[in-house]
Design a protein around this nucleic acid. Structure first.
Lengths: 231, 231
DNA sequence: CTACTTGATGTGGTTGGACCACACGCCTAG
DNA sequence: CTAGGCGTGTGGTCCAACCACATCAAGTAG
């Protein structure tokens, strides 16, 4: 057992047992090293791993914003991991898109019309109407889809969807350049978004799921994704 | 930008550009540190992060097994990340199970009867017939479900399913103790497995998906999972 | 008395160096 | 020709020191 893994186990134990909860602060690196009888280096390596997984956040200085505190950002961990494995060509972009369609369709079919996340999605839609810049439009689009996912009330699905999106973000951004007529595409996307929200409001989950699947697949098809495309 | 993140970017760039591929070896830590003009500590922190994400594997000594090489184990990264976030009670077990049902049903509906993975699944099923010990049975069960997922031909779904399984492995293990009559349960599981394989062989994806969903939900229900259960 | 300056303190961030355990492969003694 | 030892390079670990930063408290000028 390598030393930093011992530290990892200790921290995970503290989390599991509830002695270390969300927002809680880890002991200072130097003091934790002494407490566990390991070097500060090993403590730091463990902290780095947990930081990369979205479990901790390290802050320098003094005061409430400083120190190493427990956070909860599952999307960060899954996203960077997926992105790296896409980089090694071990995870085809095609599979990423396919999985995103699966998760997002399910989320749409499960979304509850009364969910606050759905109201947020509707608000985002209005902002997109008065948005001319492509970049800002796409940023709102990302938030719209994430809000849609959250409306299903499944944190794992939300995290996975966000991470899938992050993993192919650069790739999707480059695709936008392939579009022939952005204004026309944006208009179509707006209309499709409205259709999705309407289906959810009408408690027609099946239709919402189908619309979402068409929406995503249609966009990638228009941007020129081929089934064997690589990142 | 922190120093170890610079190293991370450099390595990710090497992966993206293809100069560092699966099975390739990273320069030695000391030499990489000199090349990037950073300390060995920073290089090591970056390597630790990538190791935790299943992208690298560090080996001591000399020869072909030594050095830091590129691997591809997406399941490891997603699994440990999910497990940690379950530990912080940020990801409810209920959502994990729900997501697993979603992914695995989809995989069953997409599984190709001629897939080698499906043949492997059938082989595992035979082994489970002549398997009395609970522990060994469950180990084969895990491999059976993973083979089923691989038969769908989507690497992302396979990785996510494996990681979901890993994240609640300990939890599921404890559940087994809740079962009243293990022999009867095992017999039922065997029969259900056969039904799933039969449906796939008959090209009845819809039925296969339904059987898988019932199979998983039935097991957790029998073991006493309540919707608000925590890890 | 108030308001600003200044230093002490504690945090993570980074570095260089040292030593260890390990595995391979050469090289010598038999 | 064989068997053992030893050199070399790898990651693993630890230590001591220094830096940048943020806060807070004491001290000082107004």
């Amino acid at each position: 057992m390598r030393t930093h893994q011992l530290v990892l186990q200790w921290i995970e134990g503290q989390l599991s047992s509830g002695q270390l909860a969300l927002g809680g602060r880890l002991p200072a690196e130097r003091s934790l090293a002494e407490q566990l009888q390991v070097s500060r280096t090993s403590v730091r390596e463990a902290i780095r791993v947990l930081e990369a997984m979205g479990v901790l956040r390290a802050g320098v200085g003094s005061g409430p914003e400083a120190g190493t505190v427990v956070i909860a950002d599952p999307t960060a961990a899954l996203g960077s991991a997926l992105r790296l494995h896409v980089a090694t060509s071990h995870l085809p972009v095609k599979d990423i898109v396919e999985t995103r369609v699966l998760l997002e369709s399910w989320a749409a079919s499960r979304a509850r019309p009364e969910s606050p996340a759905l109201a947020e999605a509707a608000r985002l839609l209005e902002q997109m109407d008065s948005c001319a810049e492509t970049e800002a439009f796409l940023a709102l689009d990302v938030r719209f889809h994430l809000a849609l996912a959250e409306a299903a009330g499944n944190a794992v699905v939300s995290a996975m969807m966000g991470s899938l999106r992050e993993a192919i973000q650069d790739y999707a951004g480059r695709l936008t350049g392939n579009l022939q007529n952005w204004d026309a595409t944006a208009a179509r996307l707006r209309a499709e978004h409205r259709g999705i929200l309407a289906a959810i409001s009408n408690h027609d989950g099946g239709r919402a799921a189908q619309l979402v699947a068409d929406h995503i697949e249609g966009y990638y098809a228009e941007a020129g994704v081929r089934p064997d495309a690589k990142a």
